[in-house]
């Protein structure tokens, strides 16, 4: 029992260390790819970012709308329904925007990355590239990683803005909060640091979600079952990592 625990701990450490080395290799190759093979990165920004727009916008709108409803219902008890804008903006910009976007991103784009790379490995396309002296890390993995890293902050910002308008639509247009109070209260209580906190979170989550998706795909067992499992693990591990990191960043920021 203790022996097994020890070995699984050593196993975890090895995987964790390998992940760090893999991350460093991605980073080391990133500048060269950004400069020389920018077209590849653009293609991946399209796959990871532009194709995720629809789900991000729909979810952002309804998350904002529900914040408007809940905020109004609870703040009206204290006659403070004018603060609905502040409430929605704080929740969206600092927490819900980055976190939900990261979870949706890993579900929409992370799984696609992991299964694509896993399948390339299973059908030996990666080995074939190596035979032709093309480094699959530079040709396949780095552009996908960079595509995710670039897309995440942009997706988060779009999510938050759409969410704010969702909250505005519900609170002001449906429930009758004063529009001036909605924006004014928000502006007077939000500071630029709060906005930055959300942006920094989304950057960190972008790196983590893309790294884990690429890593899981690259290390998938090259069978049909293995690729499926890698896809599942991508979502599960990303969700755990994102929520833990969210707590840590918030703790540092406060």
């Amino acid at each position: 029992m203790l022996r097994e625990l020890y070995f699984s701990f050593v196993d975890f450490l090895r995987t964790f260390g390998a992940l760090q080395l893999f991350f460093l290799r991605l980073l080391a190759n990133s500048p060269a790819i950004l400069v020389r093979r920018f077209g590849l990165v653009v293609q991946q920004v399209y796959n990871a970012g532009a194709l995720s727009l629809v789900i991000i916008m729909i979810c952002g709108f309804f998350v904002g709308g529900v914040l408007g409803l809940q905020g109004y219902a609870n703040l009206a008890k204290f006659n403070a329904e004018d603060s609905v804008g502040t409430f929605a903006a704080f929740s969206l910009l600092k927490e819900l925007g980055p976190v939900i976007t990261a979870l949706l991103f890993s579900g929409r784009a992370g799984t696609a990355l992991a299964s694509e790379i896993g399948l390339m490995k299973a059908t030996e396309q990666l080995s074939a590239m190596e035979m032709m002296a093309v480094d699959p890390l530079r040709r396949i993995l780095v552009p996908r990683f960079l595509g995710g890293v670039i897309s995440m902050p942009l997706l988060t910002a779009i999510f938050s803005v759409i969410g704010l308008f969702g909250a505005h639509l519900v609170a002001v247009d449906l429930l009758g909060v004063d529009p001036g109070a909605f924006w004014q209260q928000m502006r007077s209580s939000l500071e630029i640091g709060d906005v930055w906190e959300g942006i920094i979170k989304s950057m960190v989550f972008g790196v983590v979600a893309s790294l884990l998706a690429v890593w899981e795909g690259y290390n998938a067992i090259p069978t049909a079952e293995g690729v499926g499992r890698a896809t599942t693990r991508t979502v599960v591990i990303t969700a755990i990592a994102v929520l833990i990191l969210d707590f840590m960043i918030t703790a540092i920021a406060i």
Binding site: V42, Y46, L53, L154, S160, R187
Partner: peptide, 28 residues
């Protein structure tokens, strides 16, 4: 079309970032 889609997406994202940094805060 991929390049156009990407360009549109990045523009939209930048506009959203700009909105967040300038319109939601009053302190700057």
């Amino acid at each position: 079309s991929i390049e156009m889609g990407t360009g549109l997406f990045v523009l939209l994202g930048m506009a959203a970032l700009f909105f967040l940094t300038t319109q939601t805060t009053g302190s700057n």
